[in-house]
Nucleic acid binder design. Structure first.
Lengths: 317, 317
DNA sequence: TTGTAAGCGTTATCAA
DNA sequence: TTGATAACGCTTACAA
């Protein structure tokens, strides 16, 4: 294994000069810096993360806690995880996946990424001693990153209006969480701007339930209606319900989902959906946490990433 | 931060005794050991992974390389990842996710977990200097863990026969990989034992293709046929094709998938499928790699985990 | 600007 | 069986 000392010898300088070239290059003269850089390349020097971590009183590990039930976690998290991994990689950070909150404080970590946190979790979040970034909106001042949920449903609703669907109905998820409020708000705002009355139904997030709902209330839905759904799961059920009742998609009925991960593509027809930029969200999560760690816990604020409206088979051309 | 020294003081012993209690407890007398354990608990001692790693010339990091295209990786890997995480956690190991093989040897790691490796990858795998375990069958002597693919299709085929489907057709994935050969072998064996002739069709792994295939060859399939599919994707397409042609599932046509992750449940009707024990596979992967690391790279052999046949709506009661 | 020395928390080695 | 010492590779603090 090539160490700092090896590089130092090769470049005829002290270990410290090599260390400075890596961490504070501006403190080193250009000639020495170039000598050292050349030596590092020649020897293919790979810094030892453990030694660095020990000297810095760090662990170079970040924990990712998923509070939602795994069985229900759709493919979504896979993409998020890859984004996080990409963000951590650049700084040689590794990841620990946690599903049991008890294990969060066991072992070492420099900070925490937490998803699925609800209001009831905030008390124990406050007890944590390491920097923390949430994935998902909250209104209590925790740093977070999320999709711009409001913008997403605004885009979807505007699109449905532009495609001349007369009646626009929102199928929401029956939870009292900020992401759902934001999605509903985007829908309501846009309708109001067009002097239309909102119609919102809320269901647990299962395709079976939304399918059943559509079938049972079929007579209430006139042709020329578009359903804006708070998830692709709900959207898939709505599509099935409409097809089961003999409705024509996309001619008489439009359906727009939300999330845009996997399910939208395997469904038939493929869903028009508000696609979250999941890997990018993950990468920003990692970046925000690392910079919070570097700034010894300083507040980072919030970051909303714009989603993309992907138009496919469940809305008019 | 509580260190070994703190515990040592508290217990009135030397650091080394504390270290031994942790790593070689059999070398310490019972009384001292109890004293030390008590002190560790009282102070809530958490070993410093970085220091341990440095002293052991380890990194306490394992890299997980995914060679397949992420976009096509279904939810499957999420579960695998959680299994791996669980296996690593117990020994305070952290994970780095890699999708770019170039990055595998950048930075530090004590070993590699690799999935999606094909024969063409073996040359560069041989160049790797750290212990390595593959996820997925291979016949070149690399240590690996996989589902017992042959057993899975045997179970599926026997079940179809037991349910009195007369004709049993295999819809395979059109790749030349051991897992596919094993799945086909399980099907062929079982049919031969029942003096029936195998019928195998191979397609790329997309539901659209299998649906299309069924529709285009519909007249070739007599009622009382069961399709054994090499993936849930293919199975979902087969179901759609049958329904589209007006076939009755499960009365006249049975469909059995393979994998049992997510897709089987969101499909309608829910699939009968050969369900892989994915989190367990992940946990065993981690365990095998850690023990290989501990044994400085000793051969670990192969491990096949039995899948479960989950019977649902696409086969007869 | 560069180098020296000490220390981060742990473990292996060797001596008692 | 237990303890003192040195070492792992790096960085901070201080000296030159």
């Amino acid at each position: 294994m090539v160490t700092l000392s090896d590089v130092a010898k090769q470049a005829n300088v002290s270990k410290m000069t090599v260390s400075r070239v890596i961490n504070h290059p501006e403190q080193v003269t250009t000639e020495l810096r170039e000598l050292v850089v050349a030596a590092m390349q020649e020897l293919n020097y790979q810094p030892n993360a453990a030694a660095k971590a020990l000297a810095n009183n760090r662990s170079n590990v970040v924990k990712f806690l998923i509070l939602e039930d795994i069985d229900t976690t759709e493919p979504y998290y896979m993409n998020l995880l890859f984004g996080i991994a990409r963000g951590l990689d650049k700084r040689q950070y590794a990841l620990q996946l946690i599903t049991d909150r008890q294990k969060l404080t066991a072992g070492n970590a420099d900070g925490y990424l937490i998803t699925g946190a609800r209001t009831s979790d905030f008390p124990w979040l406050d007890q944590l001693e390491k920097p923390l970034v949430l994935f998902g909106e909250n209104r209590y001042g925790y740093d977070f990153i999320d999709t711009d949920n409001k913008l997403g449903t605004q885009m979807a609703t505007k699109y449905a209006l532009a495609k001349n669907y007369q009646s626009i109905i929102f199928i929401g998820i029956d939870v009292k969480e900020p992401f759902e409020y934001s999605r509903e708000a985007g829908y309501i705002n846009t309708l109001q701007q067009h002097a239309k009355l909102p119609r919102i139904y809320r269901l647990a997030n299962h395709s079976r339930l939304s399918q059943q709902y559509i079938e049972e209330h079929w007579r209430e839905f006139a042709p020329n209606t578009c359903f804006i759904c708070a998830s692709d799961r709900l959207a898939v059920g709505v599509v099935r319900g409409i097809l089961h009742e003999g409705g024509a998609i996309p001619r008489d009925f439009g359906v727009i989902g939300h999330d845009g991960v996997f399910l939208d593509q395997v469904s038939n027809p493929q869903l028009t959906t508000v696609q979250q930029q999941v890997p990018e969200l993950g990468e920003h999560l990692a970046r925000m946490l690392l910079s919070k760690i570097a700034q010894s816990g300083a507040q980072q604020g919030e970051l909303l990433l714009a989603p993309k409206l992907v138009t496919r088979g469940t809305t008019r051309e």
